[in-house]
Design a protein around this nucleic acid. Structure first.
Lengths: 91, 91
DNA sequence: AATTGGATATGCAGTATTTGCATATAGAAA
DNA sequence: TTTCTATATGCAAATACTGCATATCCAATT
């Protein structure tokens, strides 16, 4: 399912036009992103936690040529599913 | 930031009561979950992709006693940040 | 509705990183 | 109040990550 299809569903269940449903959805994701930029984590009970994880610089390898490569440190958004979410898929 | 604080922010930016903002938010997360249950992945352009990842059974260990334990296969929701999302935190 | 530019999936090798087990407790959230 | 979540522990095994070409897929513009 892609964003367009998701918006179509939400349009129905939220009783909004597709344009409004998309606007609503975008506001929510942007709010989460902004929070991650400033704060460091966003916890949503029953769903999961978004966190910014710092990754150290390290040595990698180009699998095509085999040569070693220096990989810079970076940051990545991680999602940790809540307990309830795990149970849904493991009952 | 926790869910309550997120809802409070959304209440303002969506111009909804807190109760309605929470209802809206819950409908969205539930819609995503339902899609994932149907074995799909949910791709949200510019944000990321939610996927159900299957994990194989393996041998684990009780860190308290040190004894080996057989761990059953399981499923887990994974979130893969979109390119745009990575760039926000690595520029 | 169709085209196009951009984003993402795949496969590969080898190393780095993460995962997840049990369990109690502390702290936070509903 | 009562439920949920983070933390901490050692360690084996699963998985992520890198460059890059190709194939596929999506989003946005015509």
């Amino acid at each position: 399912m892609n964003k367009k299809q998701l918006i179509a569903k939400l349009s129905g269940s939220l009783n909004l036009s597709k344009a409004d449903a998309e606007r609503t959805f975008d506001i929510i994701t942007n709010t989460i992103l902004d929070a991650l930029k400033g704060d460091d984590s966003v916890k949503i009970a029953g769903f999961g936690t978004y966190k910014v994880a710092k990754r150290k610089a390290r040595v990698g390898r180009n699998p095509r040529t085999g040569e070693q490569i220096q990989i810079a440190a970076s940051q990545k958004v991680k999602f940790l599913p809540a307990k309830a979410l795990k149970e849904v898929f493991n009952k």
